[in-house]
């Protein structure tokens, strides 16, 4: 699955645009990275892509195997149903749902959450439960039947919620911030597997460049609201603009 941006701009109070992308595509290469200095517009771009922020001009469209969907008229739940989901940079969660319930919520199709279902009460879906067990075996929580306790657990739960939703395209907004190193490695391993088996395409926004170089096949460099360069990690590392603007060389 790919994301196309066309003439996409966002400006606040008719000022200078914080983001300006005449033409761009994300997700052509399986696992991609998006890097750039603070204030480059990465978060704005993420918000625009998932329809949390309305663009000033331009269109975002999502291309899957058969169709091209323009996202402009859609609400954020419609975007998610098309298969585009994002993990959160800031910790987000449902404080009254246990870890399992939170995962069940993400895995359950909205069409099954009905008033009639309350009466017929098919409480458990075996496929979903097996899926959840799989994730909880792989990633250890202090109390998997209770609530996520530490910030790290909440962050991990946020990522797992997105995974179990089975998106076709996943945007990860600074997934490693706040996660212990071994968990980060395991998450990246899992992401790698999913991309390899063509279950989803993934775009990672990260400050941790080592992680980007290690895992991503392709990297976009964003600065001052524009995509200044993109290419393989090798090319990006060698690029003079990137070096000057970002890596402070």
């Amino acid at each position: 699955m790919k994301l196309h941006m066309q003439n996409l701009t966002k400006s606040y109070h008719s000022g200078h645009p914080v983001l300006n992308v005449p033409d761009g595509t994300l997700g052509e290469h399986g696992l991609e990275g998006l890097i750039g200095p603070n204030g480059a517009g990465k978060s704005t771009m993420m918000g625009l892509l998932t329809r949390r922020i309305a663009p000033s001009t331009g269109t975002v469209s999502l291309e899957d195997d058969t169709d091209l969907h323009t996202l402009n008229a859609l609400q954020s739940h419609d975007v998610a149903r098309l298969g585009l989901v994002k993990t959160n940079q800031r910790i987000q969660g449902f404080e009254s749902l246990t870890i399992r319930d939170s995962l069940r919520l993400a895995a359950t199709s909205h069409a099954d959450e009905t008033y009639r279902g309350v009466l017929t009460g098919s409480e458990q879906d075996d496929a979903i439960e097996a899926d959840i067990d799989g994730y909880l075996d792989r990633f250890k929580f202090e109390d998997p039947d209770g609530f996520a306790k530490s910030g790290g657990e909440k962050k991990l739960l946020d990522i797992l919620r997105c995974m179990i939703f089975k998106p076709k395209m996943l945007l990860m907004d600074e997934p490693t911030a706040g996660l212990p190193e071994d968990v980060t490695n395991e998450v990246m391993k899992m992401v790698g597997e999913k991309v390899k088996s063509k279950e989803m395409t993934v775009v990672i926004v990260e400050h941790d460049l080592e992680l980007i170089w290690k895992h991503c096949k392709y990297v976009h460099f964003l600065s001052e609201g524009a995509i200044l360069f993109h290419g393989t990690p090798k090319d990006v590392k060698k690029n003079r603009v990137v070096a000057e603007k970002y890596m402070g060389v």
Binding site: T50, R52, Q75, S76, H77, A80, R81, V85, K86, N88, Q92, G93, F94, E95, S96, L97, D101, S102, R104, L105, A106, T108, H110, D112, E113, T114, Y115, G117, V118, L119, G121, E123, R161, C162, F165
Partner: peptide, 30 residues
């Protein structure tokens, strides 16, 4: 009905909306 609602998928979704509506929407919930 209420007691069953509490144990149901719909009830879980309602609680999720109360806790964090934006997050629920980002998981495809209308």
């Amino acid at each position: 009905y209420l007691m069953r609602l509490h144990k149901s998928r719909l009830g879980r979704l309602m609680v999720a909306i109360r806790d964090n509506e934006e997050l629920a929407a980002s998981l495809g919930k209308d």
